[in-house]
Design a protein around this nucleic acid. Structure first.
Length: 173
DNA sequence: GCCAACGTTGGC
DNA sequence: GCCAACGTTGGC
């Protein structure tokens, strides 16, 4: 079975995915926090400003509505996963790339070639207690998670199901 | 705020 | 296509 999804001039690459996937998405809470997401209309936010090709490609080629997202706060007092969100749209162009007043403006982005793509992210649930980076590092079963690998800066990372489930358990869900 | 570890850019 | 210079990320 081959899948082709067309949207806004892109041809979504055919990716064979069986069942939902799991992700970790980083954000600096002083820029956009989990609380900010909860207070948005429909508790949904376009995940704009991603200017890394690997991260973009995950959104463009692999994310599906309904995929689960671990919401991660970086550069905060206690870095870690604070709750659960979900992918809430198919990918579409990041409008901030073509907005010359935006700090995410990219002069190379055009209507014909938007260059940067995003998905919407929707709030799903609070963790009863956050799962800190420190705690992830201290948990041997989570030692393979990308977020604790040395030098791993990618702001969107795939997460293995077993890791996702354990993190949720540690978070009290 | 420091700075190591990355990623991107652009001259050649 | 190499790689130096520059910009960014993110733990600490």
């Amino acid at each position: 079975m081959k899948e082709k999804v067309f949207f806004s001039g892109f041809q979504r690459k055919a990716v064979h995915v069986y069942g939902m996937q799991y992700w970790l998405m980083k954000t600096e809470p002083n820029v956009f926090s989990f609380e900010d997401l909860k207070s948005r209309p429909k508790q949904t936010e376009p995940w704009d400003g991603i200017r890394n090709y690997q991260a973009r490609n995950f959104m463009r080629d692999q994310m599906r509505p309904g995929d689960a997202v671990l919401f991660y706060h970086s550069r905060s007092d206690e870095a870690g996963i604070v709750g659960l969100a979900e992918v809430a749209s198919v990918p579409y162009p990041d409008a901030t790339a073509q907005d010359s007043t935006s700090k995410y403006y990219d002069p190379k982005a055009t209507p014909e070639n938007p260059r940067w793509v995003l998905v919407d992210v929707r709030y799903k649930a609070d963790f009863k207690q956050p799962v800190s980076l420190r705690q992830i590092k201290e948990t041997p079963e989570l030692s393979e998670m990308k977020v604790v690998q040395r030098g791993q800066r990618l702001s969107i990372q795939p997460v293995e199901k077993k890791h996702f489930e354990l993190v949720c358990k540690l978070g009290g869900l």
